[in-house]
Design a protein around this nucleic acid. Structure first.
Lengths: 232, 232
DNA sequence: TTAAATTTGTGTTATTAAACATATTTATAT
DNA sequence: ATATAAATATGTTTAATAACACAAATTTAA
């Protein structure tokens, strides 16, 4: 994948950020935009590092995660094309508090944050784009604090499955989740041990809520999973 | 407390937001700024409501909290003078996902968000103020997700005591926390039952880390509490 | 293509924290 | 001042989940 990827992003403008720019701004960005290929499980940036770039996921799947106590990792957010990330720490003038890694082979674009900052100063609609993004993410994190601390295991796993569905969607069969993740990642998304993720997933299979074939998960009863997520 | 409170905020400008404004902007804000007195435990806004105002805490102590499963409440953030809150949901174009309430009798100012939005559109430094605030809060919430889910009870309670210290400071004796909160609030801050907050607090007393006299908490060994917070 | 490493699956035990019960102290209202 | 309610304190039981152990299946690498 080469630079034409950028033209595709600009023309489709899913995030409604490019349409905001004037032609001079667009030229500056096109020149500074660098395409990167990441392999499966490759780290994009790590907790503690100094933020330098805005990242844009063009193709693939990315996780933001944070390493906790005793090597236990928590997946904080799922990124899908075309979403932006990596800018929070720069704006906060802090090192990264979380890491970013590719779930699968992915294509990303990077843009120096210094350039983004210049653009914000010259164009308020860019500023408002980030204000809205940050505000939505903050609402999400605050909600997640309560869900991860108060829901039981079944509720947390059901919530994760629904989150995977809402972020990456179904395959053409309208029931298979379009992401194939290790049980360990599923556990790290749901704040539980790998054993408990496997066990609880088996439980859902017994109850005919899902079927499992390796890492392929088919949702049979989405409504019930949502119910378990909500009240479990 | 009357409108002169605003002049005090403007002159001290602790948050560095007012100095950004030109005189016309300052006049508009001064005119629209409304002072409110809230009683102890009074709700400022509630989860589910539509956000309308930017709130500014001038005097007192405020909590942002979210009600979870089975009436269990989680305190998400502590607000001290002079801090701003209540704007996130407006920017996200969502109803509030959390509620705000006064820990003690407090004085607040309100400003219509529509006015704040106008100012952002005319003044990029205001936009950058909110971008930085939101970014710092998001980093805090992401860190909190991991701390609340992975630390054990002692670690979570120690963390809460340190948070109270860092937000509200010590009395003149340099050891008594300048906030007097119910055990239930301490529990809701630390993600545990009230019983366990009481029990664990008693444990800290036995270990000579703190003393407790009703709601008056004196920190005897801050270094050890920080250590328990970090590794517990 | 075969050995080694990793991931998945499942049973068992240990630990943590919630739930419950009840007494005591403190605050509030009449 | 006294009754009532609320908050604090502590002991006991129960439930949830982590930790551990190990086998089987799958993937990866030599």
């Amino acid at each position: 994948m080469i630079k034409s990827a950028l033209e595709k992003v600009i023309s489709e403008d899913l995030s409604e950020i490019w349409s905001i720019l004037d032609s001079e701004e667009k030229r500056r960005i096109t020149d500074a935009f660098v395409i990167h290929n990441f392999k499966k499980n490759q780290i994009i940036y790590a907790e503690g590092e100094e933020p330098e770039y805005l990242w844009c996921l063009l193709k693939g799947k990315v996780k933001l995660f944070k390493d906790g106590i005793g090597g236990r990792s928590q997946i904080l957010r799922l990124i899908r094309p075309v979403q932006y990330f990596g800018y929070r720490a720069y704006f906060a003038e802090e090192p990264y508090v979380s890491s970013a890694g590719a779930f699968e082979a992915s294509v990303l674009g990077s843009l120096p944050m210094s350039l983004v900052m210049d653009m914000i100063k010259n164009n308020n609609r860019i500023a408002l784009f980030f204000i809205k993004e940050l505000s939505r993410n903050l609402g999400g994190s605050d909600t997640r604090i309560v869900n991860l601390t108060q829901k039981h295991i079944r509720g947390r796993l059901a919530e994760s499955l629904i989150a995977l569905l809402e972020n990456y969607g179904y395959e053409d069969d309208n029931s298979t989740l379009k992401i194939y993740m290790a049980r360990e990642d599923l556990a790290n998304l749901s704040n539980m041990t790998t054993s408990n993720a496997i066990r609880t997933l088996s439980g859902f299979v017994s109850e005919h809520l899902i079927t499992v074939d390796g890492r392929r998960i088919r949702i049979l009863n989405e409504a019930m999973l949502r119910k378990i997520s909500k009240f479990g």
